[in-house]
């Protein structure tokens, strides 16, 4: 539908590295027009819905207590399909706890998390992954002894149907899934730009590659919602710029992204909407410009008003 955009500069493979920079230059409108092309490479079977639309996930009055400590206090917000939602707040505000509740690591003390009108309830973590929520980790947690490609394929296994006995007997389905997983895994590694290290152990990758591998592994589970927990931690400005391009590219592929990030420039630059937490409570929600000027946010998080954008 938007071949004119890509075909001009990128005749060969949509998922090529140069596109990171190109995408970074695009406006959101151009991006929306451009998404389907790239999506084909990484998520051929997905139903693509990039329009910022209906509710994908809703936090409904979620409260989480550890003994006397209230980590989340009646948190309400929604993530809409196809958007990039920023989740910000000072240290200890409950951002990562939010992730942990969404991915089933913690169960809310009260309230519920609803994905596509279905409450997550008491589902196990791997079932929640299969429902379509994937995440990365603030402190990188890869399978260090596995190769880069294997890490991604573990993610892809979440969608595989081969049984243990099927694997033992090497049934045709096993062969088909292995082949597809490897192809898709390589495509994902190219997509995030680390395919040249596919055969290395994950623990031997440079830091920036490890962060990207975390994203590729999460994408491999074919999530509806991708949760990125401080993906830019430890990055220099140039790398942050590239990461912004990558996040936009991911959204362009039809994924919905929830982003925890401390870097204000990155958050303001890439998100559609922002939710602000402080001490486990939501104190603000809105588009970046509103959040930037919101007195409560400035007081809680940004300190001096003049530094809002820095």
């Amino acid at each position: 539908m938007s071949e004119d955009v890509t075909a001009a500069d990128q005749p060969e493979v949509p998922a090529e590295g140069g596109i990171v920079a190109e995408v970074a230059r695009m406006s959101p409108a151009e991006l929306a027009a451009h998404e389907a092309e790239v999506a084909e490479a990484v998520a051929p079977d997905r139903e693509i819905e990039v329009a910022v639309g209906d509710t994908l996930l809703a936090m409904q009055d979620v409260t989480l207590q550890f003994g006397g400590l209230v980590a989340l206090d009646s948190v309400n917000f929604e993530i809409r399909r196809g958007e990039i939602l920023g989740l910000i707040g000072p240290n200890g505000a409950g951002k990562t706890t939010c992730f942990n509740v969404m991915t089933g690591v913690y169960r809310p003390t009260s309230g519920q998390v609803v994905l596509e009108d279905r409450p997550l309830g008491k589902r196990k973590r791997h079932e929640i992954t299969q429902l379509g929520i994937a995440r990365t980790f603030q402190n990188i947690r890869l399978f260090g002894e596995m190769t880069t490609l294997e890490n991604v394929v573990v993610g892809a296994d979440a969608r595989h149907k081969t049984s243990v006995l099927g694997a033992l007997a090497r049934v045709p389905r096993h062969h088909r899934e292995e082949r597809e997983a490897v192809e898709r895994g390589m495509a994902l590694l190219e997509f995030v730009g680390i395919a040249d290290r596919a055969a290395d152990k994950a623990k031997n990758l440079p830091y920036g590659y490890q962060r990207r591998l975390e994203i590729a592994r999460a994408l491999a589970t074919e999530p509806k919602l991708l949760c990125l927990d401080e993906p830019a931690a430890g990055f220099n400005p140039a790398e942050k710029e590239e990461l912004m391009g990558l996040i936009r590219k991911i959204r362009g592929d039809g994924y919905t992204v929830l982003l925890i990030e401390h870097d204000m420039r990155l958050v303001m630059g890439v998100t559609d909407r922002i939710v602000v937490l402080e001490f486990g409570k939501k104190i603000a929600e809105g588009v970046p410009a509103e959040i930037r000027d919101n007195p409560a946010v400035i007081a809680a998080y940004l300190g001096v008003p003049d530094d809002g954008a820095a």
């Binding site: 590295g17 990171v20 395919a195 040249d196």
Partner: peptide, 16 residues
């Protein structure tokens, strides 16, 4: 393809 790709992304990795 791989060379253009990796030359672009190898830098951040090294720096980081």
């Amino acid at each position: 393809q791989i060379s253009s790709d990796s030359s672009l992304v190898a830098e951040p990795g090294k720096e980081a």
